[in-house]
Amino acid sequence: MFEPDNSLEALMQAAARDAGIIPAFYRTLLETELYVLTPEAPMKPGRRRSLKFQEEINIATVDFQNMRWLPAFTSKKRIYDYIKEPEVCLGATARNLFEMLPDSNFWLNPLSECQKPLPATEIALLVSGKIFDLSMKIAR
Results as ranks from 00 to 15, higher is better:
residue 102 P to R: 09
residue 93 T to Q: 05
residue 27 R to M: 05
residue 52 K to G: 08
residue 112 S to H: 06
residue 139 A to D: 06
residue 129 G to Q: 09
residue 87 E to V: 13
residue 42 P to F: 10
residue 76 K to Y: 11
residue 122 E to Q: 11
residue 107 W to H: 06
residue 43 M to A: 14
residue 133 D to L: 08
residue 65 Q to N: 10
residue 56 E to D: 10
residue 98 F to D: 03
residue 84 K to S: 13
residue 69 W to G: 03
residue 50 S to G: 15
residue 4 P to K: 11
residue 103 D to E: 14
residue 43 M to H: 04
residue 95 R to Y: 09
residue 25 F to R: 09
residue 137 K to Y: 06
residue 134 L to A: 15
residue 105 N to C: 00
residue 29 L to H: 06
residue 75 S to C: 07
residue 106 F to C: 03
residue 78 R to W: 04
residue 123 I to N: 05
residue 67 M to I: 13
residue 29 L to K: 05
residue 127 V to I: 10
residue 130 K to D: 14
residue 93 T to C: 07
residue 112 S to W: 07
residue 136 M to F: 07
residue 57 I to Q: 03
residue 97 L to Y: 04
residue 77 K to N: 13
residue 59 I to T: 11
residue 15 A to S: 13
residue 68 R to S: 14
residue 68 R to L: 04
residue 117 P to F: 00
residue 9 E to C: 15
residue 89 C to K: 10
residue 36 V to I: 08
residue 84 K to T: 15
residue 87 E to S: 07
residue 104 S to L: 10
residue 84 K to A: 15
residue 100 M to T: 00
residue 46 G to T: 11
residue 138 I to V: 06
residue 8 L to Y: 02
residue 39 P to T: 15
residue 25 F to L: 12
residue 72 A to L: 01
residue 129 G to N: 01
residue 63 D to V: 14
residue 108 L to T: 01
residue 102 P to N: 01
residue 5 D to E: 15
residue 54 Q to A: 12
residue 65 Q to S: 08
residue 14 A to P: 01
residue 105 N to T: 01
residue 32 T to H: 12
residue 26 Y to T: 00
residue 23 P to A: 04
residue 23 P to N: 04
residue 3 E to V: 12
residue 68 R to M: 10
residue 1 M to V: 13
residue 24 A to V: 10
residue 70 L to A: 14
residue 32 T to G: 03
residue 76 K to T: 11
residue 76 K to F: 12
residue 83 I to N: 02
residue 43 M to T: 14
residue 105 N to F: 05
